[in-house]
Amino acid sequence: MTVATTNGTAKRTAAANSRKVRFRIKRCDGPNKLVRWETFELTIAKGENVISCLQKIAANPVTTEGKRSTPVVWDCSCLEEVCGSCTMVINGQARQSCSALIDVIAPDDGDTVTLEPMSKFPVIRDLWVDRSRMFDALKRVKAWVPIDGTYDLGAGPRERPEEQAVRYALSECMTCGCCLEACPQFELAEDESEWDKSFIGAQALSQARLFNLHETGAQLKGDRLETLMGPDGVSECGNAQNCVKVCPKHIPLTESIAAVGRSTTIHAISKWFSGK
């Protein structure tokens, strides 16, 4: 509400803290178009984030050279770091732009913030990339509980609070792609036909574990493990463990990878001995 942001306190602190910050933005008009860098300078008040700065640039897209450009294209939705949309590479690291507070990432007058699109996904335009591959990966690992249908058939399985806590942590994954951007084993695959040729990444592995942990979800455990024993599966992980460090939701991704590793070990041995 306006009343909330134009209150006396906010105004005072804003005036005391206002300063200039430069935004160096990697831009590209579309697939197979040339990449260019543009710099914009903004006056920053206390409490701003990368989103509010991109909004200001959109309203007045004039570069530091005084050249009129176009509003920067980027992906965003909830602005609360829960939808995963606004992920980009900020000062070299993948993160959400909504929670990138300027006071933290560029604390001093004259600082520069560098914005780039994620490098592991095809660029649509400017900072907007196509992360369809992540959703496709969820299909490949059958990341769902195979219920009979959406009719009322009584309650689901009971669950101990500790089990719920494990599943809840995994279920907070917002498909943002930070884990994949930071993974040295995950590579850009422009074409859909290439998606299953290289490492599927921590996101899908962790989701496979999530559904293997559910009593009904475990019906598809074998299918999931078979997929993850393929050439793009769990054994492509190189244990660099960047994923867990950049995950904004602090999901124990490396534990998920190890857990899937254990499941595949058991699955493979059991299959060798029992044939299924």
Binding site: V234, C237, N239, E255, A258, G261, S263, I266
Partner: peptide, 12 residues
């Protein structure tokens, strides 16, 4: 890393 790959060490 082998202990992780084989799933011997799961928890952090």
């Amino acid at each position: 890393t082998a202990a992780i790959s084989w799933g011997l060490t799961v928890s952090e």
